[in-house]
Design a protein around this nucleic acid. Structure first.
Lengths: 199, 199
DNA sequence: GGATTTTTGTACCGAACCGAATAATAATAA
DNA sequence: TTATTATTATTCGGTTCGGTACAAAAATCC
């Protein structure tokens, strides 16, 4: 138990609040989300939001970070599982699909790849955060393909970096299609086809 | 020469104006674009904009339509060219890359897949327009693979619908990566890898 | 040349927006 | 109890937003 700090205690849990903020941005995008909307979603009022996380853009960037951390965790899980390539890819996509179809306001797609692009041309920081996430996905999948090559699951002269970016492309597309309303069966079919074809 | 209409003549070319409006939405997205911005870009004033195209959302939907029409044209060109599958795919991707990297405010990505997703969860019409475009791409590529199968370029029991959606996924990803700032060489490498692998 | 029609340009409206300033509140420290 | 500190709650200011009302302008029709 940590000692209580000096002043009035916080009425919110910063981690939960940021998660709620992320979900709000996820649904409506950066420009489509108002501070009032964030306040309503988090149960905080605007001054508290500002004190806790900074201005609207800072909250959005922190939300992107939180989401990226979840992504990293999922990627770690896949890499540590040591499944054969095909199974690992299908598990990877399945995790994405489950996430993209979650939420009770309809399918959400990927928070980053479905909301950040709209801002990427007018905001350099958001563009950079988007780019960083894309390369993280590529790097993770590259490790997956490198392991598969070591195990002899793909040909010795296969281009693991190229294959990884192809596999990443499929995730991007699944995210987009989910947000456009494509039902789960279609998304799973793409995942299956990708796991079979990209090798 | 068509007869002149009755009242004061228009000071703008509706087609050019819509193109400029589309470019404005392309850069900043739907919510990120103001009517003042559209007026500045088109050279029209807000009342004229409203009279010509309707409210802000109508202008955006018409812009999506205009873009989709360009896409259809490109797809027709590829299908009519009767190139071998690999060449056709590379030409298809090259057209996308050229478009996605055009514009003097930095790389733009795909207008539809980079700006519509942000609105798709809160606006059913935009969601539907996005979905319609995605299926159009799938259908076009499906025809391409069907022709390749008829020519014996891919195996007789290949799943042309599945392959088409994989090939479409690569286009979505190239669009996203372009908007995130990935240089042309990287995009072209993905295109090459896809044309080689997805068959 | 006057009436009519269509578009343009200016100005305005209420609403929503972001951020900050200020006051009230609830805890600890002395 | 009193002072201090950190947070909450209310309010406000200035700006921007989307959309419209209204008058001026520019063409054709009679």
């Amino acid at each position: 138990m940590t000692k209580n700090p000096r002043g009035r205690p916080r009425a919110y849990d910063p981690e939960k609040a940021l998660t709620r903020a992320m979900e709000t941005f996820w649904a409506a995008g950066f420009t489509g989300t108002s501070l009032d909307g964030l306040a309503a979603a988090t149960g905080m009022n605007r001054p508290s939001l500002y004190a806790a996380f900074g201005d609207k853009k800072a909250i959005y960037l922190k939300s992107l970070d939180l989401y990226a951390e979840h992504l990293r965790e999922a990627m770690r899980g896949i890499l540590l599982s040591d499944m054969p390539l095909g199974e690992a890819l299908e598990a990877f996509y399945r995790g994405g699909i489950d996430l993209y179809l979650s939420g009770d306001e309809g399918p959400r797609g990927c928070f980053i790849s479905c909301t950040a692009p709209a801002e990427a041309m007018v905001d350099e920081d958001i563009r950079a955060a988007l780019g960083a996430t894309l390369t993280e996905i590529d790097r993770g999948l590259e490790r997956l393909y490198a392991k598969a090559k070591k195990r002899g699951e793909i040909s010795e002269d296969a281009d693991e970096a190229g294959l990884a970016r192809l596999a990443g492309a499929v995730l991007h597309s699944i995210a987009l299609r989910a947000r456009a309303g494509e039902p789960r069966a279609g998304l799973e079919a793409i995942a299956r086809q990708a796991a079979k074809t990209i090798r």
